[in-house]
Nucleic acid binder design. Structure first.
Lengths: 240, 240
DNA sequence: GAGTGGTCTAGACCACAGA
DNA sequence: CTGTGGTCTAGACCACTCT
């Protein structure tokens, strides 16, 4: 264990060293980290210094501590995907619900200009294009298109395995962990096609949610455009 | 300085004791806290324990540390209001802009049923009702109604002093610090009235942003409904 | 009992601000 | 120069998990 010499406080260097190992895939979600004492010995520092580094990682949801057991790289639970990344709620304040979905299409195609920019792809790169309707409480609410690079998700288009919670699939099957998403919400009018899928009238107001998701290393891996029937559902955001 | 005995770790008790002083108004935004050494002496603990308590407060944006000077209760800068609480951005990715606004009306009235629920008021309580258009880049973009309890903001309706950044006014003049906001975003169609104010067509898609804001102590103090022309602007949200 | 994380201490030294 | 926060150490003891 060696740390870049002289750049900032030790605890920060150690934090970054650990992050690098996770980004690089040496430690994968669910793996246990070396104990604080072992890390400290490895770096030749005191346990308190390692502790401060790990404190930061815990605050960032990168690792989880279990007293008496150890420290683990965080995994994408359904709970996290639903409560942390999914912000569509019932107007009545109902908690987010697990969704079901009907797959409309899932195919591989050449990336278009818009995809290239979002996903930082080279021209002629291929993407997987998932198109589906998501149901909340047994009614169609969200018409959604998900674009991911084929290169990272080999066989996804052919497998036909498209669960509702995609991020767990990404993590478990393809080793891609979503760490940060940026969403842009705007208002639009339902097109005839959208209206048909969502069982609403053309011209009805629609929440359009565009999401760009990236991994811990900052690599963009998903572009998603969700059209949400806004009659009974809203987008919720809490700022502290 | 006395701390509730026996309830949880010391650093947590100390953190809560400090929070209580801020909530109670003993320490107001901009005030300096006692030094860590003095706090430690007052509580009869080591400096490290106080430090851990203050670490938590820093992470929550409640206080700010300045090396060599001291630790201060956080203040609402224009920067914070604009970059932390205001999530409307240009479609082109432009940073948030300071807004100008035209006041349409600012009056006191009896709280309606909806206001009572949001603001936890008693029947017959009075509220200040601010109605205005906010401009971004010299064009009307947001039609906004802000409701606050008259009791907390004595003289606001009469003063006619309604700056664009309200939260600094709330803090400086009325001693009310906004700490947390919850926003619900939905899509609507512009009414004739809305369309006139925003210089758009009736029936155009509109982002409706409903905000409930509360103080550090959890007291709701503002209800705000903003109707945003969604042609050139979007609501942006980053989730990590 | 051995090993883990969780809390707390007492003290050292550094970096920075201000008189 | 003094006082502040910022980093780091070495060690103590506790709470918890697992064997």
């Amino acid at each position: 264990m060696n740390v870049t010499p002289g750049r900032g406080p030790l605890y920060r260097q150690i934090r970054e060293w650990i992050v690098a190992r996770i980004v690089h895939g040496d430690w994968r979600p669910g793996d246990i980290l070396p104990s604080e004492i072992n890390l400290a010995a490895g770096f030749g520092v005191s346990q308190g210094t390692v502790r401060k580094a790990v404190d930061a990682l815990v605050a960032e949801n990168l690792v989880i501590r279990h007293q008496g057991k150890g420290t683990y790289v965080a995994v994408h639970t359904p709970h996290r995907e639903l409560f942390h990344f999914f912000h569509v709620l019932g107007r009545d304040g109902a908690k987010p619900q697990p969704t079901t979905s009907q797959l409309i299409s899932c195919r591989q195609r050449r990336a278009e200009k818009e995809d290239l920019g979002c996903l930082h792809l080279r021209p002629n790169a291929r993407v997987v294009d998932i198109f589906r309707v998501r149901n909340l409480r047994d009614r169609p609410v969200i018409l959604e298109r998900v674009i991911v690079p084929s290169k990272l998700f080999q066989g996804l288009a052919e497998s036909g395995d498209v669960p509702n919670e995609l991020y767990q699939l990404f993590e478990k099957t393809y080793g891609v962990t979503i760490h940060k998403v940026v969403e842009e919400i705007s208002a639009e009018l339902a097109t005839v096609e959208t209206a048909r899928y969502l069982d609403i009238k053309p011209g009805a107001p629609i929440l359009a949610i565009e999401r760009r998701a990236e991994t811990l290393g900052g690599m963009p891996v998903e572009f998603r455009r969700s059209l949400c029937d806004s009659r009974d559902y809203i987008y919720s955001n809490e700022i502290v």
